[in-house]
Design a protein around this nucleic acid. Structure first.
Lengths: 149, 149
DNA sequence: TCAATCTATATCGCGCACGATTCAATCGCT
DNA sequence: AGCGATTGAATCGTGCGCGATATAGATTGA
């Protein structure tokens, strides 16, 4: 009697951490699309604004280091934020290779509206702050290990 | 004496679960890009193959329900898998609106190569199976709550 | 000094995601 | 039977991500 040789679930979709991560990120993105509609920002644009609200006047690569994005992604994104009059982009005097990104008054003032977002997102995810923090730390840990590869 | 009115870290990038999710997904994607290079698959294409390896002959929307993707994303992706000769696409006889996706022999046989992927990914993430399972379940739970919104 | 090298940003091409729309096939109802 | 509503897939437009390449400016060293 032969044992069926392919009943193992190694490749089962739902068993895989990578798919849990992928599909949850899709769901989170969808949630934020709704929350960010009134700010007229996409999710990556929102992240970029978070970086600048924490510290104004940063170069493209400084922003990229924090978001894990490179200039191929950021340059067009930043141009759109510039068109939206939320930031300015100008070549650094000291080093003409660098481009300094700075908030406009409009960009700074958008922060007030944005303050409501994290709480709204937390409610939607029905997470207690403790649950959210635990999951966040587990994810950051995983990311750190993946980055080392 | 005035207390600075904006030292709260509500909007701090690293404190937010959504960014942990976003950046970890970027890192995971990067890992899989490397692992999948020899299979000549992108990550979403790999997920689609997982779905078909679990059950052959499914319609576009059946695949979409499992991956949380709609036809706008899947139709072009499936066309590329068809060009790669991994699947066939043909209109259902019973219901001409539906398109049935079926594996080719080449598509079926790719499964053998793919079996090594989950283990390789687990090693890269340096997760014990228990850690991975726990994080996976926490993420599926969060996704379920987000989907209800 | 000036050529080789390195660095920061930009550009190009491709493949997702997805909102909005279109179109054909099917269903439901009278 | 026939017509409005629904459904399944495709199409279009926009915005990421990112590998690969380009380009201009800065740095290094013989």
């Amino acid at each position: 009697m032969t044992i069926p040789n392919d009943t193992d679930d190694t490749l089962a979709l739902e068993s895989q951490l990578c798919f849990a991560l992928y599909s949850t990120q899709l769901a989170m993105n969808k949630l934020y699309r709704g929350l960010l509609r009134e700010l007229d920002l996409t999710y990556p644009q929102y992240l970029t604004m978070l970086v600048l609200w924490q510290r104004d006047r940063q170069t493209v690569s400084e922003i990229g280091e924090q978001l894990y994005l490179d200039s191929a992604t950021l340059t067009p994104l930043l141009k759109r934020l510039e068109v939206a009059a939320l930031i300015t982009r100008q070549r650094s005097r000291q080093d003409e290779r660098q481009v300094e990104i700075a908030l406009t008054e409009k960009g700074r003032s958008l922060r007030e509206q944005a303050k409501a977002i994290p709480h709204a997102a937390g409610c939607a995810g029905q997470c207690t702050p403790e649950e959210a923090a635990e999951l966040r730390d587990a994810l950051h840990g995983l990311r750190r290990r993946l980055d080392r590869q």
